[in-house]
């Protein structure tokens, strides 16, 4: 028996106008979550390398918990679980952003820690020997260098988080995958639509890669 795949280009193209409205949601959840995740990452990453146990231990706990559990479980917990505690429902978009924030925040904490710890001890000593305070040495000498080294792994994390948002179709937020599912429910063109969905993710992540490569070529990254 012949098995022939009948790929319908017209159906694929026709799905585009129905998928595109998902992009703003995907971008908003990704970059909104990542922006908050970055702030969390700076805070907990620095707490993680503190010599003070009462700062270090909560940071370790946070990182282990949110890095060690699936982002899907995290978003289900936030969207379905937390309202039970709070007594009021949580907006799906807010739940999605929060899930990306706490999840990427755990990974970014480790990126921040690695970046800061990768700066040679002599840099700090040179700053201190010039009379800079520890805070000034960090702010003017260590952090700017650490940030440059952090950009490649941060880009990596951004790409991972963007893809993670596809899971949030389960809480009904109208991101890319959700738009695709809704459309397929009426057209039954799963092959064509999911291919288009995949290509749209690729377009987003690939643009980000290009921007990062451009930054690297301009010498703003690395060293």
């Amino acid at each position: 028996m012949d098995v022939t795949f009948d790929f319908n280009w017209a159906a694929a193209l026709a799905s585009l106008p129905h998928l595109l409205p998902g992009i703003p949601y995907t971008l908003l959840i990704s970059f909104g979550g990542l922006a908050i995740g970055f702030l969390i990452g700076i805070l907990f990453g620095l707490m993680r390398i503190s010599p003070l146990a009462w700062l270090r231990i909560p940071a370790i706990a946070y990182i282990e918990i949110f890095r060690g559990t699936p982002v899907l479980v995290q978003v289900l917990f936030i969207f379905y679980g937390l309202p039970q505690l709070l007594g009021s429902p949580i907006n799906a978009l807010v739940a999605g952003i929060a899930a990306i924030a706490v999840n990427s925040g755990a990974y970014i904490s480790e990126i921040v820690r690695g970046g800061v710890q990768s700066i040679e001890r002599g840099q700090r000593e040179a700053g201190l020997s010039l009379g800079l305070s520890r805070t000034q040495a960090f702010r003017y000498i260590i952090w700017p260098q650490a940030l440059r080294r952090m950009i490649p792994p941060l880009g990596n994390q951004a790409i991972i988080s963007i893809k993670d948002t596809s899971l949030f179709s389960v809480i009904g937020v109208g991101e890319l995958v959700r738009q695709g599912q809704v459309y397929i429910a009426t057209t039954f063109t799963a092959l064509e639509v999911y291919l288009m969905v995949a290509l749209l993710y690729l377009a987003i992540t690939w643009s980000l890669s290009l921007i990062l490569r451009l930054l690297e070529r301009k010498g703003l990254v690395g060293q």
């Binding site: 002599g122 000593e125 700017p144 260098q145 440059r148 060293q223």
Partner: peptide
């Protein structure tokens, strides 16, 4: 210092 420790950025 032995390793100069200039600020490369």
């Amino acid at each position: 210092f032995q390793q100069f420790n200039l600020f490369p950025h």
